[in-house]
């Protein structure tokens, strides 16, 4: 119903190549999240899928049909924008109904679908209001409602939560997860936020500089990153990345150890370091160490007391270090 296939998509703006050959397959009903640093082309890829931007070359198939020349409204998609993009002069009801009206659906059906969507998102009390009379969270719900009434095969979200405050972000995130279960539609979602990516996704697509670095489930990306970039990008605090030579491992250009995969001791261990700074987060304690080979971040669970300048010994968990070659690809153990 809502599968998506992208074959060798390229997109250039003049001289600038923004997408450099993207291949991706999304199965029906999957929740796929695009992550990557700012400017890596996530929004551009989403706009190409939506048909708001023409690809320079390559093919897009939605539900098995090539849609390169299909206008956005006929692709069976709906899109939710970071800036909400509600029509300022229309009421909430008309904002949600406009797409159906344009498609020539009968008034009864529009009313019914709007009713269902507004009930799903608890927007019943606001149907007659203008967007200017709503809070940010309500506006974003209206934008999601506008997507739902179209009953699309494919939902596209471009950083839908980044303008919301932290509490509202969590709520709306849960709401989106619930909608995904309820509607069983395919969703593609762009975000900067790792927590959003890890919690919502069936599949994460990590992008960098217009290319896909790795595709996989959240745990695959966490446990077996294929490239240095993915290793550094997924996980917070960031993985410790140390030159192999400095650790006596000249076969690897870089060695990576996640902060949570290091144990510390006051008396003995593999590496000796002194404490630079300690962050107490309640559930976690983050320790920044200075060692012979550079800074090292350690994440301990629970509360721990350490003093600045205290000498500690750190030991990596066995089998939990990652080694990368000089092309930044993982060296299989």
């Amino acid at each position: 119903m809502g599968s998506l296939k992208i074959e060798n998509i390229r997109k250039s703006f003049g001289q600038v190549d923004v997408l450099k050959g993207i291949d991706l397959e999304v199965r029906d009903g999957e929740f796929v999240i695009f992550v990557g640093p700012s400017g890596c082309g996530k929004s551009t890829l989403l706009r190409v899928i939506a048909g708001l931007e023409d690809a320079t070359s390559g093919e897009i198939l939605i539900d098995g049909k090539k849609v390169n020349n299909t206008p956005p409204a006929k692709r069976g998609i709906a899109m939710v924008f970071q800036t909400y993009a509600l029509y300022p002069h229309l009421s909430v009801r008309d904002n949600m109904g406009l797409g159906l009206k344009q498609a020539g659906k009968p008034a009864e059906e529009i009313k019914e679908r709007t009713r269902i969507a507004s009930a799903m998102l608890s927007l019943d009390d606001y149907l007659e209001r203008r967007p200017a009379e709503l809070s940010g969270g309500q506006r974003q719900r209206v934008a999601i409602g506008r997507a739902i009434v179209r009953e699309p095969q494919l939902f596209l979200f471009d950083e839908p939560l980044s303008n919301l405050d932290a509490a509202l972000r969590v709520n709306t995130r849960l709401e989106i997860a619930r909608l995904h279960r309820q509607l069983k539609a395919t969703m593609i979602y762009v975000t900067h936020d790792q927590v959003e990516a890890m919690t919502l996704a069936d599949k994460i697509v990590v992008m960098n500089k217009g290319r896909i670095e790795q595709v996989g489930s959240p745990m695959e990306l966490y446990n077996s990153p294929q490239t240095l970039f993915v290793a550094g990008f997924i996980g917070s605090p960031q993985m410790n990345l140390v030159e192999g030579a400095k650790l006596g491992d000249p076969a690897a250009k870089t060695v990576g150890i996640r902060p949570e995969h290091i144990q510390v001791s006051n008396t003995s261990g593999t590496w000796k370091g002194s404490v630079i700074h300690v962050e107490h987060l309640g559930a976690d304690t983050i320790i920044y160490l200075q060692t012979d080979f550079g800074p090292l971040t350690v994440r301990l669970f629970g509360e721990h007391q350490y003093e600045v300048d205290q000498v500690l010994y750190a030991t990596p968990d066995a089998g939990r270090t990652y080694r990368f070659d000089d092309k930044d690809q993982i060296i299989k153990a």
Binding site: L52, P72, A73, G99, R146, R150
Partner: peptide, 9 residues
């Protein structure tokens, strides 16, 4: 906003 309009047909 314009893109939302395009998607709405």
């Amino acid at each position: 906003l314009k893109n939302a309009g395009r998607i709405d047909g």
